[in-house]
Amino acid sequence: MTDNLRKLARELLESGKASVVIGYGDATLPGRTTPVFITSAAEADRLVWNEHCLNNLAVYLSSRKFKTDGKIAIVAKPCDLRAIINLVQENQVKREDVIIIGMVCSGMKDNDSGKPLEKCNACMEHVPKNCDEIIGDPASAPKPADPNAEFISLEKLEAMSPDERWAFWSKEFSKCIRCYACRQVCPMCYCTQCIAQKTQPQWIPSSQTPKGNFSFGMFRALHSAGRCVSCGECERVCPVGIPLNLLTAKMRKEIREKYGYEAGCDPDAPAPMCNFKPDDKEDFIR
């Protein structure tokens, strides 16, 4: 697949169809990859494809925008691809400005443990959709997991009492150092000013204390409701290991159950949190 990817990148750059190919290259630490920006055909051999292509490169299309005159070709796993589609839905990127190179993906592995990622075990989409080019053989892709597999991790918490859940999250958020890595790698966190940085009025205390940490963690996940494509980058990059995916998974589960919506699957679908139906469920309102 790496060879095919490099060949495609060369063609795109030589023909001028794309001015840059955003993909993965080898990192300096053994076994890891790092985002690379290939702007000439001669550099195309820096591209790699392996089980450690963890980053969601869609972040370089939204807030950490790559500036170029031509089209951007971007290497995307099926999960990352959903992020790009969601960005198109939210008018953050024009579909025609991007050439999506979809990768048939059989799952990624953790950098440290070498084990398959939790999100990959629960993956329903190994074959990319809505892309311009496909690399890999769709027939070789693993079978999709059960649609509810991604919510299994929630069961343990949902079975707890409210007090136990509060204690769990208090402990987890006490570790937060407010490095904002979760926000910065999220393709959907593209606000030019984050609510967490607002000072007048200050909605989220900036100190690295339980009150502000709780508020920040909760609101980041809340703002992802109906937009999170479950790429799991927030949890992967958290330097202190807060299980942030539990929060976003909870939101995805609610969105699916209440509004039957999956983010980033249909470029023409109306976004659930910007729309409504008069007969939406409201069993909690008296």
Binding site: P162, E164, L222, E254, N275, F276, D280, R286
Partner: peptide, 25 residues
């Protein structure tokens, strides 16, 4: 209503006692 549906689910998941948060028309 949609916003509070999600917010309420989040607060419940974090462990707030849901009797402390009431919505009504």
């Amino acid at each position: 209503r949609r916003r509070f549906t999600m917010f309420r689910a989040m607060m419940e998941f974090l462990g707030l006692d849901m009797d402390r948060l009431q919505f009504s028309w």
